[in-house]
Design a protein around this nucleic acid. Structure first.
Lengths: 201, 201
DNA sequence: GTCTATACTCTGATAGAC
DNA sequence: GTCTATCAGAGTATAGAC
């Protein structure tokens, strides 16, 4: 592949990513992707042969960025409280930089459940290590005993929800965009506090 | 409208609801809705004139069921701990009966944000009452002080997440369908416990 | 590699008979 | 109210020139 070709391919992937995330698979239009990439539809098919192929390329790229940081942190040798603190901070930072990805993933998960498993296959995240650490620290009287599959889900849920349900939350609490930005910022310490308070003895 | 017509209209709405929830707006096909309703496409347009109209009818019907129970409970005169306990129980029960609705709402929210506000417009849920109750009970030394807009979002997030991200959660923790059903059941007491533990003094 | 032009398919919507 | 038949438009995909 020539340099020009590589540039075009990256341009297509970036544009496709934006459009698929904003509109979903069915809602996305090859024409719009082509327009944003500054090329024409024919060239899309030259590079990716079909819409489905293009989506697969985008989705696997997105999916590949979802878990590694999480995995690395969970497997580190930090204490549980520090681990939780860092996890929330890193996770919220990533969400702020890509606020539409969770809704995109949920949408894909829901409307095309089959096509998903091939990307995840456990994703390498091993909750057993976390479970072990929890039991260890609980045994030493540092925290109360909790189940990893609940703790982890609770934390992630609290981080993600304000991004995927923003219009509802923003409306119920009557915030404008500026206030919502501030609300999202304030959740970092709130979530950390909420979790640490819950698992104290 | 005749009785036959009313039956047909309900049949259409039910079928449309199922298809829209499973496939999203763009992915839904008028043909499939007609097939499930046991009629033909022309009759869909006779009753609802356009796909968008039909979707609006379905969505407003779904949206109208989302908040009333929540609102009623939040405005009741129960103590905060009882309120939280009942809220989680009622909410999880509703989710178990309609496990695909949250993903549907999120999908609609994300790909068609404009069309949403006309249905919510504050939905009548008033968080000020909850805020007041929290401050009252915190002042009386029953719980620690928390912000209503964080507490409520945290609770709802923890309830909804295992439904909208089921494939990911199920895969990471390596559960089969039976185990996941059990996991969802176990979350009721876990969430209640998690929250009450967090807001204790 | 990139373009224009076009073929083909799918789908929402309508016409008109009963 | 319900049906069959058909249209019109949109959207994916391809042919072929440069």
């Amino acid at each position: 592949m020539t340099i020009a070709g590589e540039h075009t391919e990256n341009q297509i992937l970036t544009s496709a990513r934006d459009v698929f995330i904003a509109k979903g698979y069915e809602g996305a239009r090859m024409q719009e992707i082509a327009d944003r990439a500054g090329i024409n539809k024919a060239l899309l098919h030259y590079y990716f042969r079909s819409k489905e192929n293009l989506f697969d390329a985008v989705f696997s790229e997105v999916a590949s960025h979802l878990f590694p940081a999480m995995k690395q942190l969970l497997e580190s040798d930090l204490g549980l409280k520090e681990k939780i603190t860092f996890f929330v901070k890193i996770y919220l930072k990533a969400l702020n930089e890509n606020p539409y990805i969770p809704a995109f993933v949920i949408n894909t998960l829901n409307t095309n459940p089959d096509g998903f498993l091939k990307y995840i296959k456990k994703a390498g995240v091993n909750p057993l290590l976390l479970q072990k650490q929890i039991e260890d620290e609980a045994g030493r009287g540092l925290i109360r005993a909790v189940k990893a599959e609940h703790l982890l889900v609770n934390i992630i849920a609290m981080c993600i929800f304000p991004f995927v349900a923003r219009p509802i939350v923003q409306n119920i609490f009557e915030m404008n965009d500026e206030e919502y930005r501030f609300y999202l910022e304030s959740r970092e310490t709130e979530i950390i506090d909420f979790v640490l308070k819950s698992i104290r003895l």
